[in-house]
Design a protein around this nucleic acid. Structure first.
Lengths: 255, 255
DNA sequence: CGGCGGCAAACGTCCGACGTCTCTATATTG
DNA sequence: CAATATAGAGACGTCGGACGTTTGCCGCCG
């Protein structure tokens, strides 16, 4: 395992060193192959890997270019990674959200603008109007949280949190919410977050976000438990440090 | 752009659907190619991409297998992504650490064990002993933070934070620290975190971690400013919402 | 029973060819 | 002269086959 992986590393280091700045164009594949001492096939594999990592942008018929290397691009992979995680590790991801989303929302409160607030209010209305359509609810929910976090002006933070709440994860939670008739309550939680942000109240925003994540986590547990119980024998070996056997929609407070 | 990317998506969905569970072996490349209606070259590119994402494990002479899909593997990419970020976005990453590391450290305090504390104490001693060797300092620093966060028992959280403080990022901060004769002070900050953890004091742990990240951020700013000043005209357009023009090793408090 | 050798399977790499898409510069036309 | 149509070159996309190298396994031999 050397040639192709070497090529990947080589190209990456050329980018890191500034030899290939964002927007730069790479030599044609055949030339690049000669220059790195391997066949075009190998170069193609390397380029493909970097393309999938959003480091390179391959334009057919034109050439291969270095992307902007913006955090939004490079951290996009977090989402696809989370999508592949197994059920028993999804709770870990949820715990990360529990830690990060409240403080991030608190920071958003400090940097909130009126324009953003209007945007959030609109999304909130959309959400109330779509209270029956799971598909729409998920979309508006995604939009709401994205908008809140984006208010921090921190692209890396936004991409990271977007990735941590992948679509399938959200879908599962909302499935539980709807089946459990808790959709309305959850929309109210969004309202609470909105109000806290409107007051630019950092601590209140933080608290309301935590309550919201907590609700999501509780329902995720319910959904996971239900499907685990249906598919195979109970099973319940702890994986992390405290895979506590929690009951449904209620759980420990945060101290 | 379809064949190869299709293959990637197809394999990924086979894994997500459980058709290819962790440890499963994929059909040989030629067969997989026939099955998906494209050439072996295309399959190889697809497999290579998934291998680089730690989704597949290719064993030469043997076959291709699905990895464990553990968070530690799938989130490994965060590190390489961060390594490629441009200087002006590194502060965003540092802000994410500022938000996440304190609360994570606070959580670690709650779950601390005596064994971990001993481990931390040992690392701390190593660190003091290596006060002149930048290389070692970076390694022990990495080990210290990794050990602290790993105490939470949350693999996803650990991988994420490990990735956010990539090696090159750490190296830059320590370069600044050493040149600024602040290495000793920083080691004391580690000591403070250790003591807080030893007392299982969540809030104190959180506070000491924040102070530490804050120091790192301040020195990173110094290093970035110095090198920006040396290379090209001052430059200072804000990128996010508050790219405040901060002075060297001191900065705003956290509310 | 254990070590050894050889076979078969599978990945790693290379080469050459052809299709298709883009961009660009040229030629055409109103 | 300007806008458009068009032909060509350049570059990536895909394919097919061939050969080397490594690994795993199984039967053979001591």
């Amino acid at each position: 395992m050397a040639l192709t992986d070497d090529a990947i590393a080589r190209i990456r280091s050329m980018i890191q060193s500034g030899e290939l700045p964002p927007g730069a164009r790479l030599p044609p594949e055949p030339q690049l192959a000669a220059q790195m001492g391997l066949s075009r096939s190998g170069v193609r594999e390397a380029v493909k890997v970097l393309e999938s990592a959003r480091v390179l942008d391959v334009r057919r018929g034109d050439g291969t270019y270095v992307t902007s290397l913006a955090p939004r691009l490079l951290l996009e992979g977090v989402g696809v990674a989370v999508e592949l995680l197994r059920d028993d590790t999804l709770l870990e991801v949820m715990e990360v959200r529990r830690l990060l989303e409240p403080v991030a929302t608190g920071l958003a409160a400090l940097r909130m603008t009126d324009a953003r607030l209007d945007e959030l209010e609109r999304i909130l209305e959309d959400m109330r109007a779509a209270a029956d359509d799971a598909e729409k609810l998920i979309r508006f929910d995604t939009a709401f949280h994205h908008t809140v976090i984006a208010t921090t002006g921190n692209e890396a933070l936004t991409s990271l949190l977007d990735g941590l709440s992948s679509r399938t994860l959200r879908a599962r939670v909302w499935r539980g919410l709807i089946e459990g008739n808790a959709a309305h309550t959850t929309i109210d939680e969004h309202q609470a977050i909105y109000l806290a942000l409107r007051s630019r109240d950092q601590l209140l925003a933080q608290a309301s976000a935590l309550m919201h994540v907590n609700t999501s986590e509780a329902w995720l547990r319910t959904v996971l438990a239900a499907q685990a119980g249906a598919g195979r024998p109970p099973a319940g070996r702890g994986h992390g440090a405290d895979a506590a056997t929690a009951g449904p929609p209620t759980r420990r407070a945060r101290s």
